[in-house]
């Protein structure tokens, strides 16, 4: 277990630029499943045939992470950029980033000494920030980067005690669970499709494509979700709590989870004594909604995480393990 998470989180894959992640996953799962294919839009799908077949279950984890795109190369050699997905501007100041394949730079921010009065007391806008790659002119920068290049965070994966600290745990955590399930061998009656999907963070739309292709009977979106269990939020506002096991969602933005799937997940956890929690807030969305809109009932199971959508997020290993157990038990009962 957790064989792939380090490499998965350290790969660069902002929405629309999932190629490295897809190639990595593909190389690791080939030979372990009955079929692997990539669709027109870049989704990677693996099929593990069941003992009896007939019913099809699809597990969805998105490969992309929040990041940025270069929008302009300025005269002074700096780069203007805009977010791919929801990134609060307050978490990106003075962070190391990689532009394109391997150009290192930082998101620079004016020295405190030079911010006067009102400037010091306000949150900067994206258009005011620049990436500094050390180039001193536009022509020098143009030799290394181009408008439209992706920009990723560079946080190194780290395990400390029972915790994992990394970038992009949302949703490489989900990808990792799918890979670990494939590795471990799922002994199910039904056919299981493992779908590693693209562009969730920029507004989920690709599940529609998958639905046309696969016509699954049931979908579970495997996510890494918010927690808020820190001193900045009163307990009643937390969405999950680290250490309490996988979060099972009953409803989120724009979607009430299929009652049948929700109940089944909860029953499975209870019967097998797997520690779990209900997601306590209905904020945020997942791919489940898009599947449901296309007529495929979908559930959501998530690893609780702190500080997602920032350069540095955090999960607990036992939560990961319990999420794995819940999914495996669930699949093997179908």
């Amino acid at each position: 277990m957790l064989t792939f998470l380090r490499e998965l989180t350290e790969l660069k894959g902002p929405s629309g630029f999932e190629d490295d992640v897809r190639e990595y996953i593909k190389s690791k799962i080939e030979g372990k499943v009955d079929e692997v294919f990539e669709d027109r839009m870049g989704n990677l799908i693996a099929l593990k045939k069941g003992k009896t077949g007939g019913k099809k279950i699809l597990l969805d984890a998105h490969m992309d992470e929040v990041g940025f795109m270069v929008t302009n190369i300025n005269e002074d050699g700096t780069l203007s950029f805009a977010p791919l997905g929801g990134v609060d501007v307050r978490v990106i100041l003075s962070k190391k980033v990689v532009v394109g394949k391997d150009v290192m730079g930082i998101i620079g921010y004016k020295a405190a000494h030079l911010q006067h009065g009102e400037d010091y007391a306000r949150i900067p806008k994206y258009y005011e920030l620049k990436i500094d790659i050390g180039a001193s002119s536009k022509s020098e920068a143009e030799k290394k980067v181009a408008i439209g290049d992706p920009v990723s965070f560079t946080t190194e994966y780290e395990e400390v005690g029972d915790y994992i600290i990394a970038k992009a745990l949302d949703d490489r955590g989900g990808c990792s669970l799918l890979m670990d399930l494939i590795d471990d061998g799922v002994d199910a009656n039904c056919d299981v499709y493992f779908a590693f999907t693209v562009q969730e963070e920029t507004g989920p739309k690709w599940p529609v494509i998958l639905m046309e292709q696969l016509k699954a009977d049931m979908v579970i979106a495997i996510e890494t979700t918010t927690s808020g269990d820190d001193p900045e939020l009163e307990k009643y506002l937390w969405s999950t709590h680290l250490g309490d096991g996988p979060a099972i969602t009953f409803m989120h933005r724009g979607y009430v989870v299929s009652k049948e799937i929700f109940d089944k997940l909860v029953e499975t956890a209870k019967e097998s004594n797997i520690k779990f929690q209900y997601k306590m807030r209905t904020v945020g969305g997942t791919n489940a909604r898009r599947y449901a809109m296309g007529g495929m009932p979908a559930g959501v199971v998530s690893i609780p995480a702190r500080y997602i959508h920032s350069p540095i997020s955090e999960i607990r290993k036992d939560d990961y393990e319990n999420t794995f157990k819940l999914l495996k038990t669930f699949l093997e009962s179908e």
Binding site: S94, K95, E158, V160, I165, D230, Y307, I308
Partner: peptide, 23 residues
């Protein structure tokens, strides 16, 4: 969202400056 070191008398411990996700 920076990683930090907390310097204790028995060595340094990991810390991360957390930030509430937009959700």
């Amino acid at each position: 969202s920076q990683k930090v070191w907390v310097h204790t008398k028995n060595g340094k411990l990991r810390g991360i400056v957390g930030f509430m996700p937009p959700h």
